[in-house]
Design a protein around this nucleic acid. Structure first.
Lengths: 131, 131
DNA sequence: AATCTTATTGACAATCATTATCAACAAGAC
DNA sequence: GTCTTGTTGATAATGATTGTCAATAAGATT
């Protein structure tokens, strides 16, 4: 049970690039950013690295309203997001109240092993003005 | 400003089939069901009819965890869902508490024109047992 | 340091859901 | 019945994501 994961510059690059990004980014976006900075990393590798980060708890993932997967670096604490449709600005929300609500509802209906998708989309102060 | 929408048996068929379906269904699913019942309706038409129903408020749509769009007939009142990952059983939830919370959070951060995605996934009583 | 094992990479093909195209069709107005 | 034009459906196109597989390179072992 020793050899399992290996450290590569590719994984570091993805992790670092994700950390630099402001809001949520798609794998495609991140790949282009890396390429633009001279990296020769492959697209498939970016997808794999992001998936790894996500289920290692080092990144958050969610689906944008048009269906693509977006990622974002994050701490380990569970939380949700308020995201600007225009500029991608993301605000982290502590949603303890909703957590409790979700669990309660689920239990109430006999459901177990529940997960939830809770995301808010809107226009931030800046983007609201420019319309 | 008179001629805008036309009534076709295709739209009726989709609406009816959606009504018959228990939980959430994908456009592909619905198309297969219709075909199985002898209809010659085209796939693209099912997609269009579902999209129409959705933004006319006659159907709910959401993204399954693996990214495809699912639809379900519904009344007009705004609500959310608790869905079984295994069998698709869907429970409608009155989420007035969450609505309020979502609006409050958004306002608090200066966001406007907000929408939200709130869905709960889990295992229903039946499917929990059979594992 | 040389070697060996095998996790990982990356170019490319393959999937798969959804959308666009466009000629043929038909709903509803006249 | 005729005409206008919204609608259909077969098919191609798109686009994100995943699978394939030979080549590469981490890290363990000598």
């Amino acid at each position: 049970m020793s050899v399992a994961k290996r450290n590569t510059w590719q994984k570091d690059a993805v992790k670092h690039a994700l950390g630099e990004s402001k809001g949520f980014v798609s794998a495609q976006d991140l790949h282009q950013v890396l390429r633009a900075h001279g990296s020769t990393i492959g697209l498939a590798t970016v997808y794999r690295a992001l998936a790894d980060l996500a289920n290692a708890g080092d990144a958050d993932s969610l689906q944008s309203p048009d269906g693509q997967l977006l990622y974002r670096a994050c701490g380990t604490s569970h939380h949700h997001h308020l995201i600007c449709r225009e500029c991608g600005l993301t605000v982290e929300i502590d949603a303890s109240r909703v957590e409790a609500w979700a669990d309660e509802i689920a239990k109430e209906h006999g459901f177990g092993d529940t997960t939830h998708t809770i995301d808010l989309f809107g226009l931030c102060r800046g983007c609201k003005g420019s319309k």
